[in-house]
Design a protein around this nucleic acid. Structure first.
Length: 565
DNA sequence: ACTAAGTGCGCG
DNA sequence: AAAGCGCGCACTTAGT
């Protein structure tokens, strides 16, 4: 039968330069570690990967894996102790969670991990010698053994595979066409301005805005000054945000909104962004796995997860290569239906448009209403159109609604909720708890109580959304891992992509992951196989996360040479 | 001169 | 000041 692979526990040698590698199969087992000289590490890892295909157990893949990738080595399995410590320490799925250890807590600021990986990751620091690493690994294995089922183990494996993928995607990079990007910028903004100057289109809009407001000195980049100028001109808005301005009938609105649009493009993704972030035809963001409390990834550098739709055509495959792009329509409500075993909602989710299914269920009259109602149910809307429609869903989808309502109630009461695989929400912080207890004091005033109620509801909306967003993130993580698994099984292609890293230049690889969307970069003649891998991976992810429950998770999948929508 | 907080907007 | 969640980044202003 399938024996689980051995672990290779990796640590720095505290006594001499180099590394210690301990091959082991059970936490209770005595281990002897092999010393590997610094310059021999890559060869030894390559050999062990070939012979054993072990689960590489390291303090943090964030620092351990990139040098291996640069040397052309890919690891199949891993266990990231830092990421899994965070999961096993906070989970309500264990009656006795992992004892928190300060040595294994990640820094509050994720940037620290990026800026100074050596400080917190594998290195000659506390927590990275063999005894510490082995003790932490054993503690985590014991915690997983105590778990009531295999879900936490699946989560830890998926989280660690995600960390492998994140580093691989940074190494591979996202194929990016400078020429296409510059074309978009010039069409919108005019020629690249001199350093420090506004692009021509923006400058003329500023003049136009000044004329409309009778204020030649107006600076639309300064919200307070712009607000005063608007008030002087009789435009009584409370903020300068575009959602409020767009409701106003005044000649300044059109040029102002246009200016905001262009200013955003220029400052966030203009020529400086290109200079800073695109090298050799690749955009290489740093992905921060576990960077969001719900389990979603965050990113650092270049705003990788906020690339505007407008610039998607600049995401361009290499000559002879194509993209397989895929995204899930309405992932979160589908996940909610499945995790709550709401068969009525799963029926509504049948097919490619869940919102039309909600209309068919009779809960609401139009697709637009269905969308507001479903989003409001997951986000905790109480007022407005959305808040008005949410109660209709309670009669039609009682199980799904009970699930999110219970999560909200737990959060309001200061409790901890968890995703389907067992990632726990953060406990309320000290400020929250003291606000609640102050409201219960005998001398508490009405303002204290109102404030406490408001904070409680804020937290309820957070925990309500946490269970859905977090479980959707787990589906996406499993999808990603299944895609990688299938892509690694495809044969190398004869044609190399010119700009990829050494570990990727000859085979299909993931190039972007964005919550519920992936881009695979692959040789054109492997596009069909890669697309099938992405599709089959989605089915596998659904089957693993929701065994025995029928839920459609349809993909919008295409093969193309750019990422335009 | 530097940092922290607020504003606003892009993405899901 | 989005009705309602989660992020990152650029810019300005207020504070040291």
């Amino acid at each position: 039968m399938n024996r689980p692979p051995p672990h290779v526990v990796v640590a720095r040698d505290a006594d001499r330069p180099g590394w210690l590698l301990a091959v082991t199969t059970a936490p209770a087992q005595d281990v002897t570690a092999e010393h590997v000289r610094e310059d021999a590490l890559h060869d030894r890892v390559r050999a062990l990967e070939h012979e054993l295909a072990p689960r590489w157990t390291v303090r943090s893949l964030r620092s351990f894996y990139p040098p291996l990738l640069a040397a052309g080595i890919r690891l199949r399995r891993a266990h990231d102790l830092l990421l899994c410590h965070a999961i096993l320490r906070d989970t309500p799925a264990l009656s006795e969670p992992l004892t928190p250890s300060p040595l294994w807590v990640r820094p509050d600021q994720p940037e620290d991990l990026v800026a100074q990986p050596g400080l917190f990751d594998v290195g000659p620091d506390a927590g990275s010698d063999l005894d510490e690493v082995l003790a932490q690994w054993r503690a985590q294995q014991d915690a997983l053994d105590r778990a009531p089922d295999g879900r936490l183990a699946l989560l830890c494996a998926a989280e660690s595979t995600g960390a492998l993928i994140a580093e691989e995607m940074t190494a591979a990079g996202l194929p990016w066409s400078r020429a296409v990007h510059e074309g978009i910028l010039e069409d919108a903004l005019g020629p690249r301005p001199l350093r420090g100057a506004r692009p021509a289109r923006m400058a003329s809009l500023v003049r136009e805005i000044g004329e409309c407001l009778g204020d030649a000195e107006v600076n639309p980049d300064s919200p307070p000054r712009l607000l005063r100028a608007l008030h002087r001109a009789g435009v009584f808005v409370e903020s300068t945000s575009k959602w409020e301005l767009s409701d106003i009938d005044h000649p300044v609105v059109a040029p102002l909104l246009e200016y905001k649009r262009l200013a955003r493009l220029f400052t966030a993704n203009g020529w400086s962004w290109l200079d800073d972030w695109v090298r050799g035809g690749r955009f290489r963001p740093v992905y921060l796995t576990g960077g969001v409390v719900t389990g979603r990834w965050a990113s650092s550098g270049g705003g990788a997860l906020q690339i505007p739709r407008q610039l998607r055509p600049a995401v361009h495959a290499d000559p002879g290569w194509v993209f397989v792009t895929a995204d899930v329509a309405q992932l979160e409500p589908r996940v909610l239906a499945a995790m709550s075993h709401d068969t009525a909602m799963a029926d509504a989710a049948r097919g490619s448009d869940l919102y039309e299914g909600v209309v068919r269920s009779g809960a609401v009259a139009s697709r637009q209403e269905a969308k507001y109602a479903v989003l409001g149910a997951m986000y905790g809307a109480t007022t407005g159109e959305s808040g008005r429609l949410v109660p209709r869903l309670r009669t039609v989808f009682p199980r799904a609604m009970a699930h999110v309502d219970a999560a909200a109630r737990t959060g309001e009461e200061g409790g901890v909720v968890s995703t389907l695989l067992g990632r726990g929400s953060p406990r309320p912080d000290e400020a929250w708890r003291s606000a609640q207890s102050r409201a219960g004091d005998p001398g508490a005033g009405g303002a204290d109580e109102a404030r406490a109620r408001s904070r409680a509801r804020d937290r309820g909306r957070f925990t309500r959304n946490f269970v859905v967003q977090g479980t959707a993130a787990e589906w996406a993580l499993l999808w990603l891992a299944e895609i990688r698994h299938r892509l690694m099984a495809l044969p190398p292609a004869p044609v190399s992509a010119p700009a990829s890293g050494p570990a990727f230049d000859d085979r299909p690889h993931l190039a972007l992951f964005l919550h519920d969307e992936v881009i695979v970069h692959c040789p054109a003649d492997q596009a069909g196989a890669a697309a099938e891998a992405v599709r089959a991976a989605a089915e596998a992810a659904t089957a693993r996360l929701f065994p025995g429950f029928a839920i459609d998770v349809p993909l919008d999948l295409s093969i193309r040479d750019d990422a335009a929508t």
